[in-house]
């Protein structure tokens, strides 16, 4: 398998075939909670892309240069990764606030939410610690592979949350049965979208 093709497979697998929201059900809370408007969904998607990439990179470094050489990875990886993510989020928030106030106003409210967004921890754990990844390409990722994987996951999150928000905006004006108003119909839509994404299964032998 040639090198660029491998990257392509990792990216596509993370983006579509194992889509984090619809196929793996990670990070559903923002999908149901935030995706009522397209604009907020775009903000959320951008912030997730940013934080997730940094978190995975930092976790990769921590795992390969600190946890693994010291032999404490097996039982310390959960607290270490989550602390890395939490402090990164705080740090990002401070930097953005200082450097670009407009961006902060656009992204600010989502940043604290991202700490408990399971997608970030999931992407970091899967791309760094061996044994969790379902993708049929490698047991252990190098740093660039880890980054490609994470960006794929984050874009997969963004694509779905934006599609979902578009549908929900239209839904506001459509006649929905009384009992299904609000969250229930959102889940039914998610089911249909998920059905569509299942069509990508086994694409390119992944």
């Amino acid at each position: 398998m040639s090198e660029p093709y491998r990257y392509f497979l990792i990216f596509l697998g993370a983006l579509l075939i194992y889509n984090i929201l619809l196929i793996r059900f990670i990070a559903l809370c923002p999908l149901i909670g935030v995706s009522t408007q397209v604009e907020t969904s775009i903000g959320m998607a951008m912030s997730v892309l940013f934080v997730m990439t940094m978190a995975s990179a930092a976790s990769w470094v921590a795992w390969n240069y600190v946890l693994k050489p010291l032999g404490v990875g097996e039982f310390l990886y959960i607290p270490v990764f989550i602390l890395i993510i939490a402090s990164l989020v705080q740090f990002t928030e401070m930097v953005i606030k200082k450097v670009s106030p407009p961006l902060y106003r656009a992204m600010g409210i989502y940043l604290p939410l991202i700490t408990t967004n399971c997608a970030v921890l999931a992407a970091a754990t899967e791309s760094v610690k061996p044994g969790f990844l379902k993708l049929n390409v490698a047991y252990h990722f190098s740093l660039p592979e880890c980054l490609v994987y994470t960006i794929g996951v984050a874009l997969g999150f963004g694509v779905v949350i934006i599609i979902f928000a578009c549908i929900r905006e239209r839904l506001e004006t459509s006649p929905v049965p009384h009992t299904f108003k609000g969250a229930p119909i959102a889940f039914i839509i998610a089911a249909l979208l998920s059905l569509a994404f299942m069509g990508f299964a086994n694409l390119l032998g992944l």
Binding site: F25, P177, T179, A183, P184, A186, F187, A191, F197, M198
Partner: peptide, 13 residues
């Protein structure tokens, strides 16, 4: 996967 969303949506309804 879709079954999960479908079942949960119906339970909520």
């Amino acid at each position: 996967f879709p079954g999960a969303f479908l079942t949960f949506g119906c339970l909520l309804a």
